Structure formats: structure tokens, C-alpha cells
Measured scan of single mutants.
Amino acid sequence: DRYEFNINGVHFTIDDAEEELIKLIEELLKRGARAEEIEEVIRRWER
């Protein structure tokens, strides 16, 4: 599934997002994580 979200006006799209990654990102968003922090999480996840 495609997952899309915005952080401070920056648009992100993840194709074939796994449910666990989506939950992790949503938790980070609730905590007010910065875009750079979430980008790093996504990079690590994709390795």
C-alpha cells in the first residue's frame, strides 16, 4: 500500500509501506518528530 503524510509542509510518500513502519511513523508524528528524524527511520527500515 502507498502511505502518504506531511511534516511541516514536506510531503512524503512510501510505496509498499509495511504496517509496522506506518505505525512507527505515526507514533513519531504524535511525538512531534522532525522530518529529518523520520527520514532517518525510513532509511534504516529500508536497509
Results as ranks from 00 to 15, higher is better:
46 E>Q: 09
39 E>N: 07
33 A>M: 05
10 V>P: 00
13 T>Y: 14
37 E>Y: 08
26 E>N: 10
41 V>D: 01
5 F>S: 01
21 L>D: 00
36 E>W: 12
25 I>S: 00
15 D>T: 09
22 I>G: 02
30 K>P: 02
21 L>N: 00
42 I>V: 08
17 A>T: 07
24 L>T: 13
17 A>L: 04
22 I>Y: 04
2 R>D: 03
18 E>F: 03
39 E>F: 13
42 I>M: 06
39 E>M: 14
43 R>Y: 10
23 K>F: 13
3 Y>Q: 02
13 T>E: 07
44 R>L: 14
6 N>M: 14
33 A>K: 05
31 R>C: 09
38 I>P: 00
24 L>D: 07
29 L>V: 09
1 D>G: 15
3 Y>D: 01
5 F>N: 01
33 A>S: 10
41 V>M: 10
33 A>G: 06
18 E>G: 08
26 E>A: 11
27 E>D: 11
27 E>V: 15
47 R>I: 12
34 R>W: 09
30 K>D: 09
20 E>R: 05
16 D>S: 15
46 E>I: 10
20 E>D: 10
18 E>L: 04
36 E>G: 08
5 F>A: 02
15 D>V: 14
47 R>A: 11
40 E>M: 10
11 H>C: 04
1 D>N: 15
12 F>W: 07
32 G>L: 04
20 E>G: 13
39 E>G: 08
11 H>D: 07
5 F>R: 01
19 E>K: 09
30 K>M: 14
16 D>E: 12
10 V>D: 05
17 A>W: 05
27 E>T: 15
41 V>A: 12
2 R>H: 08
3 Y>T: 03
46 E>P: 06
31 R>G: 09
25 I>M: 03
39 E>H: 15
37 E>G: 02
9 G>H: 03
31 R>H: 10
43 R>W: 09
28 L>T: 05
24 L>H: 11
14 I>P: 00
44 R>M: 15
19 E>N: 07
26 E>S: 10
40 E>S: 09
37 E>A: 06
15 D>P: 12
28 L>G: 06
14 I>F: 04
10 V>E: 06
15 D>E: 14
24 L>M: 13
26 E>T: 10
34 R>M: 14
30 K>V: 11
23 K>I: 12
12 F>H: 03
19 E>T: 11
29 L>M: 11
21 L>K: 02
7 I>V: 15
26 E>K: 14
34 R>E: 14
32 G>C: 05
22 I>L: 05
13 T>I: 15
12 F>A: 00
46 E>F: 15
36 E>T: 09
28 L>P: 00
19 E>W: 11
12 F>D: 00
8 N>Y: 03
40 E>C: 08
45 W>E: 02
47 R>T: 10
12 F>V: 05
4 E>I: 05
47 R>V: 12
40 E>H: 06
29 L>N: 03
5 F>P: 01
6 N>L: 10
8 N>A: 08
4 E>H: 06
7 I>R: 02
33 A>E: 04
32 G>F: 09
36 E>K: 09
7 I>H: 06
40 E>T: 07
43 R>K: 09
14 I>R: 01
31 R>E: 07
34 R>A: 14
45 W>P: 01
31 R>P: 02
15 D>G: 04
23 K>M: 12
25 I>D: 00
19 E>V: 11
24 L>V: 14
7 I>T: 04
11 H>K: 12
29 L>Q: 04
6 N>R: 04
38 I>Q: 00
27 E>F: 15
2 R>Q: 07
8 N>D: 14
13 T>M: 11
37 E>W: 05
23 K>H: 11
29 L>A: 05
47 R>D: 06
46 E>N: 11
16 D>A: 14
7 I>C: 02
37 E>V: 07
8 N>R: 03
23 K>L: 13
25 I>R: 00
33 A>P: 06
45 W>L: 02
42 I>P: 00
17 A>K: 08
24 L>A: 13
43 R>F: 09
39 E>V: 13
12 F>M: 05
13 T>S: 14
12 F>Y: 13
47 R>P: 06
26 E>P: 00
31 R>S: 11
26 E>W: 14
27 E>N: 11
25 I>E: 00
10 V>C: 12
41 V>S: 06
22 I>D: 00
6 N>W: 15
47 R>S: 12
31 R>D: 07
41 V>R: 05
5 F>D: 01
4 E>T: 05
18 E>H: 10
21 L>E: 02
38 I>R: 00
22 I>A: 04
24 L>F: 08
33 A>Q: 04
21 L>Y: 02
15 D>F: 15
5 F>M: 04
16 D>G: 15
10 V>R: 06
30 K>W: 15
8 N>M: 06
36 E>V: 08
10 V>H: 15
33 A>V: 09
4 E>V: 04
36 E>P: 10
43 R>T: 08
32 G>A: 07
6 N>D: 13
30 K>T: 12
40 E>W: 08
45 W>G: 01
35 A>W: 10
13 T>P: 01
39 E>T: 12
